[in-house]
Design a protein around this nucleic acid. Structure first.
Lengths: 215, 215
DNA sequence: GATTTACTTGAATGATCATTCAAGTGAAAA
DNA sequence: TTTTCACTTGAATGATCATTCAAGTAAATC
């Protein structure tokens, strides 16, 4: 009856998702044509509409895929590099920096791009983007809680975790526009200095031009 | 009879610019069709191509217009509300908050949207976007310098000014995705707390228990 | 009065868009 | 064997895209 022995069948579906994930990231949603998706997935339009009811449905599936990939692709590799919770937060940011480096500052966070591009009326898409952001913030918040004793007790950890995401997205956005890492690096440096202030370190981020004074 | 050298002519051009500024802000560049621009400007395609060589040329002119409007539209109104340089910085951010409120969190900074949407290969556009960001940062930097004696001497004012823009753009981006002001407000609150730390105030931003929201 | 210049008109263009569909294929189920 | 059904093919569809252009208006200049 409903025995799903079909694996190669779903491989076509996966190829559509892979192609779309890549193209939506590189060119955006509107600028990506179905023809490009079909070519990259090596399949025909009839096949596509067998699996997805529309281009928009594909977008939603891609966004669901990002949510599934959040833990294994974004969080886990960063956490593997450090055990200290605050180091882990900045390791996540370092992951996005590497993405900027690899692409010559052209492409940063695919969700940030879609958050600003997708029309506000598309609630299913924006709800999924918001869910992704929520998961991202929750991961950072988990780190902050693990280091709670280092922060002032009155500090709003939710707001701080949101602020970390804000720093990443805002830094990526600026670096994309000028094609230099500087705005991203400066933003992360300021965030690091804020953390230093919060945790009692009196660091104030020395200017990069010469050798800093303190520490 | 009517001696109007070339004013009414340029008014058509201005209508194109006004229409495009609005539509690129509301719908983005790719999603805005020429037909919509022509309709909103109440003109025909032949008129359009008399003034602009292409849709892309119109985009560049819109971006130039934003740069011209930076001082009178963004900076001056904020500066008029406060004389203290740090208050002025947060008044600029407040301006973007009001934009979010007016549009139900749908539309924030038009340049941020275009920074992520426009293809990276479009250097003329990205150079203009970067110039806008540069002007924005310079205005903030001017405030920081006016309050220089309140900050640690080793603080990198350029980086901090960039960080202010990062906070705005990242906050707007998140608020758009979830259609709530909270991420923007939380981000600005954290930035404010950072400023408090830097200027020696021992504030750590108390958690907003319930609906407690301070300006 | 004739010519030139600045702008406007709007149908036509061809490219590209997402989507549809009738006609398949091949393997599992009956 | 026959039927069923998940999946594929790819040309066709009509809508929409940015852009073009020949024809026109009206004021300025000659």
């Amino acid at each position: 009856m409903i025995i799903q022995v079909k694996k190669p069948a779903s491989s076509t579906r996966t190829r559509f998702l892979d192609a779309a994930r890549y193209l939506f990231w590189e060119k955006g949603y509107a600028a990506t044509g179905m023809a490009e998706i079909l070519e990259r997935a090596e399949a025909n339009s009839g096949s596509f509409y067998h699996f997805f009811s529309s281009k928009e449905a594909l977008l939603l599936a891609v966004l669901d895929g990002y949510l599934e990939g959040l833990e294994p692709v974004i969080v886990k590799p960063a956490f593997a590099r450090h055990s200290d919770p605050i180091d882990r937060i900045f390791a996540i940011l370092q992951g996005y920096r590497e993405r900027l480096v690899e692409t010559g500052c052209r492409y940063g966070c695919p969700l940030g791009r879609l958050a600003l591009e997708i029309e506000a009326e598309n609630l299913p898409a924006h709800n999924r983007i918001a869910a992704n952001f929520g998961g991202w913030i929750a991961a950072v918040r988990g780190c902050l809680e693990a280091a709670r004793d280092r922060f002032p007790p009155s500090l709003d950890l939710d707001a701080l975790a949101t602020f970390v995401l804000t720093t990443m997205e805002g830094g990526v956005l600026q670096s994309r526009s000028c094609r230099r890492l500087e705005p991203f690096d400066q933003s992360v440096a300021q965030l690091r200095n804020y953390f230093a202030c919060l945790t009692g370190g009196r660091d104030t981020v020395p200017k990069p031009k010469k050798k800093g004074k303190q520490e």
